[in-house]
């Protein structure tokens, strides 16, 4: 297990290094003349050059990259050119919206999908199982924004149970914050649950055909007991891997959902800053999100190691 953890950590570090280079390169490649855009249409060539030099944009790219990384690692994520706000401050104020939304969605997806997928697998040759499979298939096909609009229309507009958008800060009224999060979390959760339900069903069906499940049944476990005692635990292994993929889907979903429910979250903040060409803020925030997703993945990987004795205990 020790070597496994070490391998995962090294992998984690290398991936972060590579993504940081990619983020830097992509943003620079797509950015155009940053100084010109920041200064607006009526700026002169000298002004642009002056600002470029001031921002250090005239220096060689590797130097800029290393400076950014160096600052980043020391906790200095840079600041916005116009508003002079610190990127770290911006992230810090948006995180209380985005983190509960994304983690809540992931958690809800798990809570919905595991029992539902198990049910679909258990009843795979009955209409009820086929119905659940169909439902998850439909769920996968529905775009996130559409699911969001639908839910807010039903529960917000028609039933008037929950706010259809907007945000109440936690410090102001935490019940209000929770209420604003319910529909977004459900939208994200249901969409991700569709994918996960399908994977759960497949994973369990696959496992139930394994030789060791047959042995378990030959030893006296009924189909149901074998499913619970042997099937689920073994099916959880491929599912843990799927959760890692889902964590990435989660970020994409969060971007759209924050838009649909007009939540002041991180993704909205990034979009605003991309439009404003606040290169440093975008760079650092995207990096923070990558670290967030990678950390979830790392935790999932380690959980996998704990679940699977073939990794945990050597020969």
């Amino acid at each position: 297990m020790g070597r496994f953890i070490l391998r995962r950590l090294v992998f984690f570090a290398i991936t972060l290094l590579i993504t940081s280079v990619l983020i830097f390169a992509l943003i620079r490649a797509a950015g155009g003349n940053v100084a010109a855009i920041l200064l607006g249409k009526n700026s002169s060539a000298e002004e642009i050059l002056k600002l470029s030099t001031e921002l250090g944009l005239e220096r060689p790219l590797p130097v800029q990259y290393f400076e950014w990384m160096n600052n980043f690692l020391h906790g200095d994520l840079g600041q916005a050119f116009r508003s002079k706000q610190l990127a770290s401050h911006l992230i810090w104020t948006q995180a209380p919206v985005s983190v509960p939304l994304s983690l809540g969605g992931l958690l809800l997806a798990i809570i919905i999908a595991i029992p539902l997928g198990t049910y679909a697998a258990k009843n795979f040759n009955k209409p009820s199982g086929a119905f659940v499979a169909l439902l998850s298939q439909i769920g996968i096909a529905i775009p996130v924004f559409w699911a969001g609009l639908l839910l807010s229309l039903v529960f917000g507009v028609h039933l008037g149970l929950l706010p259809t958008g907007g945000w109440v800060p936690w410090t102001e009224n935490w019940v209000g914050s929770l209420r604003s999060l319910v529909l977004p979390v459900f939208t994200l959760g249901i969409v991700m649950a569709s994918t996960l339900t399908r994977y759960t069903r497949t994973a369990i069906l696959d496992v139930m055909n394994e030789d060791f499940v047959r042995t378990a049944r030959a030893s006296g476990m009924s189909r149901r007991v074998a499913l619970i005692k042997v099937g689920l635990r073994n099916a959880s292994l491929p599912l843990v891997t799927v959760l890692g993929l889902l964590a990435a889907e989660m970020v994409g979903g969060t971007v759209i959902i924050e838009k649909v429910y007009s939540l002041p979250g991180i993704s909205r903040m990034i979009l605003d800053n991309v439009t404003a060409r606040e290169v440093v803020v975008v760079q650092s925030t995207v990096m923070v999100i990558v670290i967030y997703v990678m950390t979830i993945n790392l935790i999932i990987d380690l959980a996998y190691g704990l679940l699977d004795p073939r990794i945990r205990v050597g020969k």
Binding site: E210, D211, F212, R214, T215, A216, R217, A218, S219, G220, V230, R233, N234, L237, L307, D308, P309, R310
Partner: peptide
């Protein structure tokens, strides 16, 4: 099964639950 009648299978590498 396992009580009054039992079965030994061909391939022992896959016949035992790997996580128990």
């Amino acid at each position: 099964r396992g009580r009054t009648m039992s079965m030994v299978f061909q391939d022992p590498t896959t016949a035992l639950n790997p996580v128990a």
